[in-house]
């Protein structure tokens, strides 16, 4: 057994437990993106950063891959952690602004601006689909290939894989495939619609037609003519 403190609270966990699991046990929320129960931790998105250690030797680690150590002091929401987390979300937003999952994260963590070039990539290389295919579906049909800026996910030689059973598990776990609602401004870096809870259709003059099928709308009480 290993005892550590998370945000000042002592907790004792089994050897091999990750900080993320220990924090979850205590009920401290740590946002994750590339972590999924049932898949090997991979540490790709860095969203789950926490601060460990004290004073000058304090450092940020990814809690989903970091195993609990005896006497470890973890802070899951220090200023430094929050700043780093927001920056990570901002960077993810830059890569993949069309993803609903990432836009939701931005809303939830108060990221209101995005200072980077919008890339509109299809993939954030979180590796969820690769792990899904390998660990849960035991197919190993897709994998990482290339390196650096050419790194991407695909089947070998980009041809139809013989081992793929078209189970769709990869699509199911993909955080980039689920598109956000585009509002009336598809290029807007941060949609933020969910953060202020104003339905986009309220600014009615910007729409040709109302988006929702409720008439009258329960939020804005506008009725479709």
């Amino acid at each position: 057994m290993i005892s550590l403190t998370i945000n000042g609270l002592p907790v004792t966990v089994d050897k091999g437990t990750t900080i993320l699991e220990a924090a979850k046990f205590l009920g401290f929320p740590i946002p994750t993106l590339c972590h999924m129960d049932g898949l090997e931790p991979y540490g790709a998105c860095r969203l789950c950063v926490v601060e460990i250690g004290e004073g000058n030797s304090a450092r940020l680690v990814t809690s989903c891959t970091y195993r609990a150590e005896e006497g470890l002091k973890v802070r899951t929401a220090s200023n430094r952690v929050l700043r780093a987390r927001r920056m990570i979300i901002e960077l993810l937003l830059g890569t993949c602004p069309q993803s609903k999952v990432i836009q939701d994260l931005a809303s939830a963590h108060g990221v209101k601006r995005q200072r980077f070039k919008q890339e509109h990539e299809d993939c954030i290389l979180c590796g969820l689909c690769v792990r899904m295919c390998k660990e849960q579906m035991a197919a190993k049909a897709i994998g990482f290939q290339g390196r650096g800026e050419n790194r991407r996910i695909g089947t070998p030689f980009d041809i139809k894989s013989e081992v793929c059973r078209l189970c769709g598990g990869c699509i199911y776990v993909c955080p980039a495939c689920q598109l956000r609602c585009t509002y009336n401004d598809p290029d807007k870096a941060v949609c933020g619609g969910c953060a202020n809870l104003t339905p986009p259709c309220v600014e009615k003059e910007k729409f040709d037609d109302m988006m929702c099928y409720m008439s009258p709308c329960v939020a804005c009480e506008i009725r479709k003519e």
Partner: peptide, 10 residues
């Protein structure tokens, strides 16, 4: 698996 070999090769 071919993905692993291909991953290393690329």
């Amino acid at each position: 698996s071919l993905v692993d070999v291909y991953g290393v090769a690329t």
